[in-house]
Design a protein around this nucleic acid. Structure first.
Lengths: 344, 344
DNA sequence: TGGTACACTGTGAGCGTTACCGGGATTTTA
DNA sequence: TAAAATCCCGGTAACGCTCACAGTGTACCA
């Protein structure tokens, strides 16, 4: 009895032998290449299924000098936005036959850009989706120098870079929509709880808030601004701080829905009724926000779509390069829309 | 000027040549093998960094007949539980030097177990973490036959299988804690909004509810049960249905926090005050649940830890096998705890 | 009837790395 | 002082596959 514990892989050679053809012919059948007789093809196919043969992706990649793997650099999947993004990326990738190599960068310890680049190169990924929202200074340089010259890269939700493809949501416009709505409802003293200001998306949402105030000729003061970290906790603390330093506040734009939830809770605590004595709007339109009390008015954007688009674009560029054509990846900006519910 | 567009990889051969040693010696240095003079080692190292040489993981895997890749089969990362799990898996994996090959199975179209198995085999993963919560009937057989005999597998949050390692949270006990607390508070007509009953975790939580009712000698009727799908939406609809079919309801156990949120909203709609005329408890303790109105009493469990444990265990088993030892992976069940807040 | 085109198949050389074995130089042991 | 052990290092053969090229046989045309 052979030992079962370690399992010998079935190789293309055995399939070839069993089917009475050469290895090359089997390879041709496997990859759908032309120039193989229908009868032979059928015979090989039947042997393949009978032997449950699975070609080694590794050997294939080595020989062909190209992989079926896409690198994805992201900050995690615990926040709603990134999770949606990754879900879209994942689906489109598997639909198109790509595997994913996920590289999570810890925002707290961002010293391992080098490790990320190393991994991507050593696994020989065919392209990279940079879904990590921050890319500045030395890190940027390191990455750009190591990766971008050699590989197609699509950036997600980032500041537009000259010469790079960036696909993102128009955060600024979305925030503008939200605050514009508050203005339209008659609110005049509108505060903001921002996201981490190191992030581009947080900066953009703040700018949208600014734009809307300016358009309505409303005064703006730093006491109206408070920084959060996307968590409900920070939204709660944020609103308390905001009210303390700017008591005449009559509305607040929370830069995401979780913070809006925290703000709602804080409003209750200080005896403000929403939307009567304080209006709240959020951003993201997470599925739960319709069930907040009151139901949250917020900004909807389709991050899953964004992820899908990124993969499709990368796919296009990779294939173009493989066929020798030179295409530049195109940038794109998706428009969000306002969802009016009860909180404003 | 050479064409920059396509980039030639630096190989071990070039490093060897540059350092004036053989390829084999470079390989030894790279892998930290013994039998290389300190002086030589240093020289090789310096050439490696100077040339920015990155060994090809692919070639390495082919030659060594083993990869640094773990397969993870999951249902996605948009729900809180799975996302936490995957976050834990990801962190522990990178800390231990493993790469991940994520295989998302769409619960709606589960016909592609075969594709998943194929991918795992063809990429030659060293082990598998099965974090997909359902594994029944024919699919189970297919997977077990194709993967388990050859590869170490750890199952997560599943029914204990004879002979397989399962790491999970004691959902039944957690639900028992929650409902027990309701009973202790004097509630007597306790309903449940379950998760999708195809899932083991949902079944377990329902059993815990049953246990607690039985222990308190409370009657139990099918009108007290309603099935949800983990979404806030379904929690909302669920509570409305529950009240319609069982009007004397005075408390409800929602099998996760999102559904609890929906239930809270529905309670408001039908004029029930929580917790006075209706108590609500949830499960999961998502970060937002402390900011629900009222703050949610719920069951806390550490899924991230669970993921980390799974990776560590798999790591252990893989290394044992490589060294020829035979270890069986051990099963484990983590205990959740009750977090009492305002809603009950 | 010869030549040419075409359809099909096989051969050999890699892809970049590690495992196995063997050999020379140096040290240790009896 | 001879023999054995040890330390370094290199050559060669895989690993499983694809690519470029070189065939072989058959059909077609003039």
């Amino acid at each position: 009895m052979a030992k079962v514990n370690h399992w010998r892989r079935i190789t293309i050679r055995e399939v070839a032998h069993e089917a009475g053809v050469s290895v090359q012919t089997v390879s041709r059948v496997l990859n759908g290449h032309p120039d193989v007789a229908e009868k032979t093809r059928a015979r090989v196919q039947s042997v393949v299924t009978r032997l449950r043969y699975r070609p080694s992706g590794i050997a294939r990649s080595l020989a062909a000098q190209s992989t079926q793997m896409l690198g994805v650099v992201a900050s995690g999947f615990q926040l709603f936005g990134p999770a949606q993004l990754l879900a879209g990326i994942e689906r489109q990738a598997t639909e198109l036959g790509w595997h994913l190599m996920l590289q999570i960068v810890d925002p707290a310890a961002p010293a391992d850009y080098d490790r990320v680049a190393s991994n991507l190169i050593s696994q020989n990924v065919a392209g990279v989706i940079w879904a990590y929202p921050e890319l500045t200074g030395e890190r940027e340089r390191a990455f750009h120098q190591q990766i971008e010259p050699h590989l197609p890269v699509i950036f997600l939700s980032m500041q537009a870079q000259p010469g790079s493809a960036v696909i993102s949501v128009d955060n600024r416009h979305g925030a503008w929509l939200a605050v514009q709505h508050l203005v339209g409802c008659g609110y005049r003293r509108i505060g903001i709880i921002t996201g981490p200001m190191a992030l581009w998306s947080a900066q953009q949402r703040r700018l949208g808030w600014q734009d809307a105030l300016a358009a309505a000729h409303l005064p703006r003061h730093s006491r109206q601004v408070v920084e959060g970290d996307w968590s409900a906790e920070s939204g709660h603390a944020g609103l308390l701080r905001l009210i303390a330093q700017f008591p005449s506040l009559d509305a607040v734009f929370a830069s995401n829905d979780q913070m809006a939830l925290g703000a709602l809770k804080a409003a209750e605590r200080v005896g403000r009724r929403v939307p009567d004595t304080l209006a709240v709007v959020g951003f993201d339109d997470i599925p739960e926000s319709a069930f907040f009390r009151p139901a949250l008015t917020t900004v909807h954007h389709d991050l899953m779509d964004l992820g899908r688009l990124a993969v499709r674009e990368l796919h296009r560029v990779i294939h173009a390069r493989r066929e020798g054509r030179t295409t530049t990846a195109t940038s794109l900006m998706l428009q969000p829309r306002l969802v009016v519910r009860e909180s404003a």
